[in-house]
Design a protein around this nucleic acid. Sequence first.
DNA 1: GATGAATGAGAGTTCATTCAT
DNA 2: TATGAATGAACTCTCATTCAT
Lengths: 200, 200, 200, 200
Amino acid sequence: MAKKVDKEQRQAELLESAVAVFAERGYQATTMDEIAERAGVSKGMLYIYFKNKEALFGAVFRWFGQQIGELMVDAIGDIEDEVEQIRRITTLWAEVAIQQREFVPLFLDFWAAASLRGMRNDYAEDLATMYDEYRTLIIGIIERGQAKGTFRAETDARAIAYLLVGGMDGIFIQSWLAQPEHLDQLMQNAIEMLLQGITT
Amino acid sequence: MAKKVDKEQRQAELLESAVAVFAERGYQATTMDEIAERAGVSKGMLYIYFKNKEALFGAVFRWFGQQIGELMVDAIGDIEDEVEQIRRITTLWAEVAIQQREFVPLFLDFWAAASLRGMRNDYAEDLATMYDEYRTLIIGIIERGQAKGTFRAETDARAIAYLLVGGMDGIFIQSWLAQPEHLDQLMQNAIEMLLQGITT
Amino acid sequence: MAKKVDKEQRQAELLESAVAVFAERGYQATTMDEIAERAGVSKGMLYIYFKNKEALFGAVFRWFGQQIGELMVDAIGDIEDEVEQIRRITTLWAEVAIQQREFVPLFLDFWAAASLRGMRNDYAEDLATMYDEYRTLIIGIIERGQAKGTFRAETDARAIAYLLVGGMDGIFIQSWLAQPEHLDQLMQNAIEMLLQGITT
Amino acid sequence: MAKKVDKEQRQAELLESAVAVFAERGYQATTMDEIAERAGVSKGMLYIYFKNKEALFGAVFRWFGQQIGELMVDAIGDIEDEVEQIRRITTLWAEVAIQQREFVPLFLDFWAAASLRGMRNDYAEDLATMYDEYRTLIIGIIERGQAKGTFRAETDARAIAYLLVGGMDGIFIQSWLAQPEHLDQLMQNAIEMLLQGITT
DNA sequence: GATGAATGAGAGTTCATTCAT
DNA sequence: TATGAATGAACTCTCATTCAT
């Protein structure tokens, strides 16, 4: 009886349009008109599904984090060896950095948004949580590797997790700016040297 | 002839105010009124010293890059040992990340700005140049270390430079979000493990 | 769907208000606020219907040109005799100059606008086209008159058109400045003498 | 003892610079900075010689009117025949319109300025006076011609003056817009036909 | 006298958000 | 339910004018 398009699907469509426009223009330069137009709905519609522009951005933001988290978990799902798992995650990151190049500005916007606006928003918290999950994933790998004897016992798993997650983010940015020819090789080499430092 | 203060000093004052407000509010949320008020001058004054808001932001940006570059060069100036030089740079970064915590949002804004607005701006280029200099500095250290036999000959100096510079940026962000208790220790540990992988 | 009034009517209303304010104050001194207030709408509304102030002025300008063109064509519509047609056009001009006195400044602004701003605007072109049409109308009358033998064969129709159109414009301005008591009589006399020069 | 440059000469220099810039940019777009720079003096200097921007424009305006008036008087100075005098004035106008093409926008600005700002300014009055002088000059010619029998007794000298002055102004504008190839010929033809109508 | 740094009121323009239909 | 016309606060930027030096 009600409209055919169910709410969830509609929301997903709006989100998709928002992602595209935010990535193209950046948060500030993006107008609600543009998102509505891209989604093929009225502007008023956006305000039914999302409280305001910032909430829409927040939704995009969380959706993205989820996607990446899933990718990471998938990437290591069927691999036993911990060293290989670290390698896979790195490779995944390089792939994303290369293939999804157009979303880098979006990430930078996420970070910028998270760093501001004081206590009002919860971006910072969301982002922190998101990264915490990534680090926890890596810490788990390292610790399992240590239990097996693959990684040195004295390795500071938390430090490695920070360096890896941070490093990959940094390389993300750097690659966007510098566009090195063999980014994937570069990242792989970097990780190998780090692995050399922590494997037995 | 001039009225009160000399032009260079006045420009520096305005820059200082701009840095403070941009760091507090972010580029977009910052108004020229606010900067002028903070500097204790009229709004029109800003437009005498800087063509427009973006140019002012650009000036802040370049000033920052210069500061950090100088800090890095100073930090390793009187040190002979290459391993120690790497450690010093890392320590410096940690110090900056901790002590200048309020400027992290500014950097995120720099990146966000650099990633957008197409070909119009030259932030991206400036930023790329800046990071290239940092990397060149590190590559120089590694290569000198390799010549001395401190670092393994097969070490990919460029990859290390990317990981270090990117990694430090990443840790910068991560530390801002997560506020780990012993960030400096964490970074030091991470670097030690990496050094273990590349020293002979 | 639409809120209250239909778009075309709304546009016409805004145009009307704009005409009034532009005529009163001149292009530069007119503010968008003032136009909006006169129209009883918000300032933002103006920007929905017209891209910017200049575009609004351009619309006013074209609307005016159209009105006058129509008046001229109407004025000679049901008249056979060419001499009489010339007289009618002159009379019309005098009527407009007298009755629509408040719009003279607007015309002067059109001209001033057309003469400036380099290639960016197309006022000059629009204005040239508009006047070309008026001249073509007059040339047509003269030539038909020549074919009939009413006007001398050696009459330079184009020169007459220039003198008439230019002359009327000039008289327009002059009358605004000097406010002669019997402008219509004056113009009629002038035209009669010119007609004496070109009729057989 | 005092400065070498005497006040009058200085004022004339400033005026000259102002004329050039106003003609290039139009009244509104012209900045006091630009005039000062062109004159090679400080901005403050301008305000010593002219009360404000409008006063400067007014001075330019009156200076121009004077120049043209002198040109007209000179043009007919040594000519006896009234018909020829009319022809000379027309020729002069054509010459000015062609050779001083860059000043047309300035005139349009004069007119626009004169037509606005209510009672505040005296442009309108100045302009009216100026044109009145031109017309008086022409009326004088016509009347002398009538006295001699060159022009028909029933000719309305005032109407002719209006048509001529207005017509020439109009042609001025038209020529600026349309840039006809043989403007001088065109104007001459027009005047000849008019003369045919009024000569015996 | 002469300067030009400094002012600040005021303009055009944008766009997130609302709400009558 | 869905729309998109309408709002208006807020922003950037300009420039005539002043006045301390």
